[in-house]
Design a protein around this nucleic acid. Structure first.
Lengths: 146, 146
DNA sequence: TAATAAACGCAACTCAGTTGCTTTAATGTG
DNA sequence: CACATTAAAGCAACTGAGTTGCGTTTATTA
């Protein structure tokens, strides 16, 4: 599978689905593209807004579930009661640096931003805790919503 | 307020509530004690089970809300759709809520731990982004699940 | 192109958390 | 202590994210 450092071609997206035993439906290709374009996390509601078609929420939830089971995306911890998903950049490419920066979520417009300049403190071990992944999430107001 | 590094005496619990302009009701003293005894985070459901009395869920939610506003406890990021709360072991107040430590989530047992020693890089501004809260979440295996 | 199973879509449901409003009880003052 | 005040408790009804069941559509494969 190709590195997911930006927008993927339609052909790549389709073949990624195929490689994960998922059918190449119009919606799932669109959804995968959305995730490949989005450096931070997404909620089902955000997906519904961004994907042009008026898809049923059940379709979205089942697609997210299927994508997660296939290892394409993963749940992201959140303080609200919303489930957030993000693309597995580390698993899907050799570019480990991609998820090594902070993510900013605007509490007004819910837009998510990639803070490339802010690095996440990386550590593997802390006491008897074995750390596998680290996540630095910043919340507040984006330039548009101040 | 004293550091809450272990089990507190009934008198301490009551005075802590008083200092935060919260009334010393039987339930809230019990709830505060439960938090002081618990090193990891708690959900409303877990609280309902552990607190002896059959309290209304609304009472629990409102107490959690009041405790959070007073800086006694804070929300903890979680991957499920449950809201988790943990006690602020550091000095927190309504004015300056200090919650700048990392949280560790065990991917095996789903238990959440406050890593008081690991500080979250604090910043208020980054470019045109106004940062209100920062969240550093670590995932992996806790000592029990290695 | 027909068979088949995955994905879609609709309706109805679950369940954590919320809101409104009334009652109870903690606290402060005389 | 008695009373006034107001936070907290308690009940009912609601909200909204996410789920389940089931019939229909469509991508795949033989």
């Amino acid at each position: 599978m190709k590195a997911v450092s930006g927008i993927l071609l339609m052909a790549d997206l389709a073949s990624i689905l195929q490689q994960h035993n998922l059918r190449k439906t119009k919606f799932r290709i669109e959804l995968l593209q959305l995730f490949s374009e989005t450096t931070s996390s997404l909620t089902a509601e955000e997906i519904k807004k961004r994907v042009g078609k008026t898809n049923d929420k059940v379709t979205i939830y089942r697609a997210l579930d299927a994508f997660e089971k296939s290892g394409l995306i993963h749940k992201v911890p959140d303080k609200s009661n919303l489930t957030r998903y993000a693309m597995c950049h580390t698993n899907c490419s050799a570019h480990a640096h991609i998820d090594n920066h902070a993510h900013f979520i605007c509490t007004e417009c819910n837009e998510t931003f990639c803070m490339d300049e802010i690095e996440v403190p990386k550590m593997k071990q802390h006491g008897d805790f074995q750390i596998k992944t680290s996540n630095l999430t910043l919340e507040g107001n984006c330039p548009k919503c101040i």
